[in-house]
Nucleic acid binder design. Structure first.
Lengths: 240, 240
DNA sequence: GAGTGGTCTAGACCACTAG
DNA sequence: TAGTGGTCTAGACCACTCC
C-alpha cells in the first residue's frame, strides 16, 4: 500500500545475473548457463529468465547466438571497434589505426577528476597520453585518467604492446569492463603543442571530446580528454 | 530449404502496425487499439502483438502507458526536446529557447542535397535559415533543406509563429514525422557572417553539425547544416 | 540427435487508470 | 468495476549449431 516497492521477478533475476557478471564469475567472451539451466536454478520459468537476459543483451552486456548459447560481451570484437571511438573517415572507414604512447605516469587526482570519478582529491591515478594515427595521419591526441587502485599493475609496456582497444586490455588484464560512456563535445583551437602533434597550425579548429566511462552499476572508472582532428574525418552521432 | 525467407509472425504484425502509422491512420498522440483488440483483429495471440509493439516502443514510434493504452509518439512533449537537439548548457539546462527566422525561400536541389535526400538535382526545395537563442545568447545558426513536394504549403509565417520544435510543426501540419537522424560533426572556424550572428570573432572555433533526418521506413526527408557555439554549451553524446 | 536460443500460444493474475 | 498494459507460467514447436 504505502510502500511502492514492487519489483518484477525478471528484474530480480536480472540483478542476480548482473552480480554474477560484476563478480567476474563469468568471464568476457565465455558462455553463461543456458536459459533452462538458469530457470531451474532460480526456480522460475524460462520466459522470465529470457526477459532478464533480453534486457542485458539490449544493454550490450550479453549477446546471444542462436543454437550456441548466450555469451558475456567483450571489447575484443571488430563490431565494437567504432562503438566507443565514433570517428570515421569522410571516405569510408579509416584504415589501420596505430597507437603511439606519448606519456605514462602516476599522479594524484585533482578536484575535477576526483569529482568526475567519485574519488577524493589526492587519490592515486594512472595517466596515459597517446596519439592515434590513422593510416599515417595523426588524428586523435588524448589523455586517459584511471584510478590507481583499480589499475595497480598497469605499466607503460602493457599499454604500448597491447593490440586493439585499451578497453580490451582493461577487461582481460584487470577485470574491469567498460559498459557505457558519456561524451561532451566542444570546438576548440589547437595550441602550439597539440597542433605540432596533430600536424595542424596553431589555432586550427579541433573537436574537444571529454569522456567519462562507466563499468557495471554505473560506476565511473575512466576520464578522458581528447582532441580530434576533423580534416578528412568526422564524429558520428545517431539520434533516435 | 533453399529460400531462407523466414519471417516471425510478430515481425509481420510489426509491419502491419508500421503501415498503419505511416498511412496516418493513427495520428500522433492518439491511442492505438488495445493489444487484445489487435490480437483478435490479426488472429494471433496477445503475446505476439505485444512483442511487435515492444519493438516499436523501443524505436520510439509508440509509447505505452500502463492502465491507459499505447499511443503514437509525438515531438510535442518536453521529453523529446533534447533528443534531437543535443546541446546543453555547461551549468544545467539552457533556459528558454527563442527561434529567429533569418530566411525562408524556395530553391532547387543541388547535387549534394539531392544525393543525401534521394532526390534528383533540380528538384524543388524549401530552405529555412534560422538562429536559436538560449536566454538571450545566440548559440545555433542553421540551414534546413526540405523537399518542396512534401512541404508544399509551408510558409515563412508558419515557421515564424510555431511554438516548439520544427518537427512538431512538420508532424501536425504536414503529417511527416521524423523518426531518427544521423549527425556528422566537425570543428570549423567562424567566418565573418556567421561570427557576427553568433557574436564571436571571425575564426572562432565552432561545432559544424550536418544532419540527415529520416521518417518511417528510413526515408530521408530533411537535411540540415548547423554551426553551434560551444562557449558555455556542449554537445552531449552517449556511447553504449 | 541433442542442446541451444527463438517463436507462439492460452490462460491466469497483478498494477494502474478512469468513470 | 471495467479496461488497459505488465508479469508469469507451462508447454509446444521451430531454427540453428555441433557432434
Amino acid at each position: 500500500m504505502s510502500s511502492p516497492t514492487f519489483s518484477p521477478l525478471y528484474q530480480q533475476i536480472k540483478t542476480l545475473l548482473l552480480e554474477a557478471l560484476q563478480s567476474g564469475a563469468w568471464r568476457p567472451g565465455t558462455a553463461i548457463p543456458s536459459e533452462m539451466d538458469l530457470a531451474s536454478r532460480y526456480k522460475v520459468s524460462q520466459g522470465t529468465v529470457r526477459k532478464a537476459i533480453d534486457e542485458l543483451a539490449s544493454e550490450n552486456l550479453l549477446f546471444r547466438r542462436q543454437g550456441k548459447g548466450t555469451f558475456v560481451a567483450t571489447h575484443g570484437e571488430r563490431q565494437v571497434r567504432f562503438r566507443f571511438l565514433r570517428l570515421a573517415a569522410d571516405s569510408g572507414e579509416p584504415g589501420a589505426v596505430e597507437r603511439q604512447l606519448l606519456e605514462f605516469r602516476r599522479a594524484r587526482a585533482g578536484a575535477e577528476v576526483a569529482r568526475m570519478l567519485e574519488l577524493k582529491a589526492g587519490d592515486p591515478m594512472v595517466v596515459i597520453k597517446r596519439l592515434l594515427v590513422f593510416g599515417g595521419d595523426p588524428v586523435v591526441l588524448e589523455e586517459v585518467w584511471l584510478p590507481g587502485t583499480l589499475f595497480k599493475g598497469l605499466t607503460a609496456a602493457a599499454v604500448s604492446d597491447h593490440r586493439g582497444a585499451l578497453y580490451n586490455l582493461f577487461e582481460t588484464q584487470f577485470g574491469t569492463r567498460m559498459v557505457r560512456a558519456e561524451e561532451k563535445l566542444k570546438a576548440a583551437a589547437a595550441d602550439k603543442a597539440s597542433g605540432a602533434l596533430l600536424k595542424v597550425e596553431s589555432g586550427h579548429p579541433l573537436l574537444a571530446v571529454e569522456r567519462v566511462s562507466y563499468t557495471y552499476s554505473d560506476k565511473p572508472v575512466e576520464w578522458r580528454r581528447g582532441l580530434y582532428k576533423t580534416d578528412g574525418y568526422f564524429y558520428k552521432s545517431e539520434l533516435g
